[in-house]
């Protein structure tokens, strides 16, 4: 049995004028760490809200642990943990009060599943008596995760848990997710950060309510159909502008200190000569392996 299934789910808002989720079909397996990767407005939150029984789809059906997201919503709510993108705990309750509240709501206690939250909770325990509204962003995030875990959910839904969080805290957060996965919890996490895709077992790349690709990160990158080159020169912006005007360039976009390019006919040496003749200095070109972001951009441009 798949932990989560989506079968031709469509969701619109504003009397059908806004298409948020467009005919999405998807399965997430038991114990999987699954990523929904896409920018704001891609439809990630709508999918989460259908699966967490907070929103009715227009069309299609969805299940969580075999229960139907419309009919069996009460069963599902007992079995899932949900951390929404927007901080949704009680700001004027303390850390401990929030945790107690959510435990009680699910007929549990903090002690009951302490092992599960121990690693995370101990980092915020020194602030037990502080009101949630007064916590820093990183601590709020940890408290929200504890509250989502306190009843030992079978499936955990995390909607952009790392948005706006700095690189260091993001790394810590993903370490926590890996440990949770080892406890057998199925985790579905969304993120706009393409580099985080690499930390998931399988991912769905989402844009404009549609899934562009679902697979392991390695397979998605391996499916990149053409050779990808990274190129740089002393004046990178001038180089980028020049490349854009060349007919032999299939795609070119800035990527950190390099420009990533694909060619219509794979003649990279001819391109090097041309660019050097145009007066660009210290031209450096290398063949590279595409990353998830390269794949995402290519799929977006094809759509």
């Amino acid at each position: 049995m798949s932990a989560v299934t989506l079968d031709h789910i469509t969701k619109t808002y504003d009397e059908g004028k806004v298409l948020a989720v467009d005919d999405i079909t998807l399965q997430v397996e038991e114990g999987e760490l699954f990523g929904l990767i896409g920018p704001d407005g891609a439809g990630k939150t709508s999918l989460f809200r259908v699966l967490t029984t907070l929103l009715l789809p227009d069309k299609g059906s969805a299940t969580v642990r075999g229960y139907d997201c419309v009919k069996d919503y009460k069963e599902i709510r007992k079995r899932i943990g949900y951390m929404p993108g927007k901080f949704s705990l009680y700001q004027d309750l303390t850390v401990k009060e929030n945790l107690d509240f959510f435990a009680t709501l699910f007929g549990s206690t903090i002690e009951g599943n302490y092992e599960l939250i121990k690693d995370i909770y101990e980092q915020i325990k020194p602030f037990n008596d502080r009101r949630a509204g007064k916590l820093s962003g990183g601590m709020k995030q940890k408290l929200a995760l504890c509250c989502a875990l306190i009843h030992k959910p079978e499936v955990l839904f995390l909607d952009e848990p790392t948005t706006g969080v700095d690189v260091v805290s993001r790394k810590e957060f993903w370490e926590m997710l890996k440990r949770l996965k080892q406890q057998g919890i199925t985790i579905i996490v969304s993120t706009p950060y393409m580099d985080e895709a690499m930390l998931c077992e399988r991912i769905a790349l989402i844009q404009n309510g549609k899934i562009m690709s679902v697979d392991t990160p390695a397979n998605i990158m391996a499916a990149f159909p053409v050779k990808l080159y990274a190129m740089k020169a002393d004046n990178i912006y001038k180089l980028l502008t020049a490349l854009r005007g060349m007919p032999e360039i299939d795609s070119s976009f800035a990527f950190g200190e390099y420009i990533h390019i694909t060619l219509k006919d794979d003649n990279i040496e001819a391109l090097r000569q041309k660019v050097e003749q145009q007066g660009h200095t210290h031209v450096d070109i290398k063949l590279i392996h595409p990353g998830i972001e390269d794949s995402f951009i290519r799929l977006m441009n094809q759509a």
């Binding site: 896409g38 920018p39 704001d40 891609a42 952009e160 948005t163 706006g164 706009p192 393409m194 844009q207 976009f253 800035a254 972001e293 995402f296 951009i297 977006m300 441009n301």
Partner: peptide, 9 residues
């Protein structure tokens, strides 16, 4: 923040 990779560029 949160903008797709093409628009970001």
């Amino acid at each position: 923040g949160g903008v797709d990779p093409v628009t970001r560029r």
